[in-house]
């Protein structure tokens, strides 16, 4: 009892996500260089950087979809273990939305959302279903509940993926380039859902190329280059007056178009 209580006490103070001196190599390639990052409850952190800068890898390490070589990752103050039940439990606290949606192709939209709550949280089918329908209507795809993922547009699929993550009542959600695989006309419907989510107080880490979204929604912008965090700033400061030279070049290269 006292043990769980003390845990709860520390977790209310601890950041939702914390990375300490995280290093990762692909062979000789140093893809994450001494990453230190702390995300507080309710904070929206947007990660920006040129392709190959390691921002996606960073995002995936937080859920241990990528292993790390040194350093440590804490979820609500608890160290992310390498395997086992504890890893699964911590993963379930951190939702993930992928670039390619990754909805379960053989399951209906509704079953996509109910699968993990039933399997992991052991919810009853009726409870999981009614909650799933609420979430699907929150993201505006409740009318598609009985369809298969392949019958939906990319934007709809990605909104279902967000509902699926929300069904686990996560403490934070990671977005790994959630709009990069979408046709232009579908990007906004996904960003709208994400904006609504941010204003509802969800803790979010968002890897994205949508600069307007970053400017509008982020509490903090992180700029990565060659595997390192080279600038950490408020969105206002970052977009008007970036300190890092690579960040300046990056922003300039986007503006020329």
């Amino acid at each position: 009892m006292s043990d769980t209580q003390s845990k709860q006490n520390t977790s209310s103070e601890a950041p939702v996500i914390e990375l300490q001196h995280v290093d990762k190599y692909y062979g000789d390639l140093h893809v994450l260089k001494d990453i230190n990052l702390s995300v507080k409850k309710g904070e929206v952190v947007v990660v920006i950087g040129p392709s190959g800068s390691g921002k996606s890898t960073l995002c995936r390490t937080i859920n241990r979809l990528e292993t790390i070589d040194s350093g440590c990752i804490l979820i609500e103050g608890e160290k992310l273990p390498e395997e086992g039940a504890k890893l699964a439990e911590l993963r379930s606290k951190v939702g993930m939305v992928f670039q390619s949606f990754n909805l379960f192709a053989h399951k209906t939209i509704l079953d996509n959302v109910t699968m993990a709550p039933m399997n992991v949280l052991h919810k009853s089918k009726t409870e999981a279903r009614s909650e799933a329908m609420e979430l699907l209507s929150r993201v505006g795809v409740d009318s598609q509940a009985s369809k298969l993922p392949s019958q939906l547009s990319g934007g709809q699929q990605q909104r279902v993926a967000i509902a699926r993550a929300l069904a686990m009542h996560p403490k934070a959600i990671l977005f790994d380039e959630p709009t990069s695989a979408l046709d232009p006309e579908m990007i906004n419907e996904v960003l709208d859902v994400m904006t609504e989510l941010a204003s509802s107080g969800m803790t979010m880490v968002v890897v994205t190329h949508e600069m307007n979204f970053a400017r509008r929604v982020a509490d903090r912008v992180i700029f990565m280059d060659s595997g390192a965090i080279v600038e950490e700033n408020t969105p206002e400061e970052f977009f008007t007056n970036p300190k890092n030279i690579r960040a300046q070049e990056f922003l300039k290269s986007i503006k020329t178009h």
Binding site: N63, L65, A85, A88, E89, R91, S92, K93, V94, G95, M96, F98, S100, N102, L103, F104, A105, H106, M115, A116, N119, V120, A161, R164, A165, M168
Partner: peptide, 25 residues
């Protein structure tokens, strides 16, 4: 492999991932 990653990220264990997501497909 995204199917597996999605299931893992939801907190499902390897066994459940295999029998509920991977093998049926």
């Amino acid at each position: 492999k995204g199917q597996r990653e999605a299931a893992l990220s939801l907190g499902m264990r390897e066994r459940a991932v295999f029998y509920k997501v991977i093998f049926p497909q």
